[in-house]
Simulated assay, not measured.
Amino acid sequence: MSQEIAISFGTFDEFTWIRCEGKGSFLQSPALKECAEKHRNKGETHFVIDLEACTGMDSTFMGFLAGLASRVGKDGGAVMIASPGEKNRRSLEGLGLDCLLDIAPDDASWVGKEEEIRGKLTPFRLNRLPDIKDRAQHVLESHQTLAATSDDNAKRFATVLQVLEQDAAKHSDKES
């Protein structure tokens, strides 16, 4: 069964563009992950995440963005954020993710072409909805990434990580 969600994408000469609509949350980030990983598996290392229609982001969503930036950075790639809006910019910068993500760069090749690019995007169709075990693991990994980005984040997410580790273990045990 395939699920259509509020993510659209396109691959262009220099990057893969992924547009997120609505709330960037733990519900939407598994689809963002699947879309990005499909393109990474094809050798793509430069991503633009379009947040123009994103009404806000939770920590799981931001943790996935940070993890993607870390992974593609090891391959010489980068993750750029297009049209974050003030609220989303503050959220990303508040967690220090501006050290991993290039937020609204003035000199990117796509600047001034955003509407043209958005007009060429295709809706992303999720292959399958993640089960509870996969969701718990994804949420945990996203928060581990956030905690690893700085000492402040490590302190900020310490208790959350304990709860998420227990939750992931509980769901893993149920399927064993």
Rank of each mutant, 00 (worst) to 15 (best):
A66C: 09
I18T: 01
C54D: 11
R19K: 13
T55D: 11
T55P: 06
W17D: 02
V48Q: 01
D50C: 04
E21G: 06
A69E: 14
M62A: 07
K38E: 13
A66K: 11
G67L: 06
D58K: 03
E21Q: 13
L27M: 05
T45K: 12
G56Y: 11
F15M: 03
M62W: 05
S29P: 15
S29D: 10
K33I: 01
M57C: 15
A53G: 02
E37G: 05
C54A: 13
C20R: 03
N41P: 04
L27C: 06
F61K: 07
R71H: 10
L65S: 11
A36I: 04
S29K: 10
C20L: 02
L68K: 07
A31M: 07
P30N: 06
D50R: 07
F64R: 02
K33V: 01
I49T: 00
T16C: 12
G63P: 06
H46D: 14
F64M: 05
S25W: 03
G43H: 07
E52R: 13
S25C: 04
C20K: 09
A53R: 04
L51A: 03
R19E: 15
L68S: 07
P30F: 04
I49A: 00
F47W: 03
T55F: 09
G43M: 03
T60S: 15
K33W: 08
T60F: 12
E14K: 14
F26G: 02
R19D: 09
M57V: 12
H39D: 02
E14H: 12
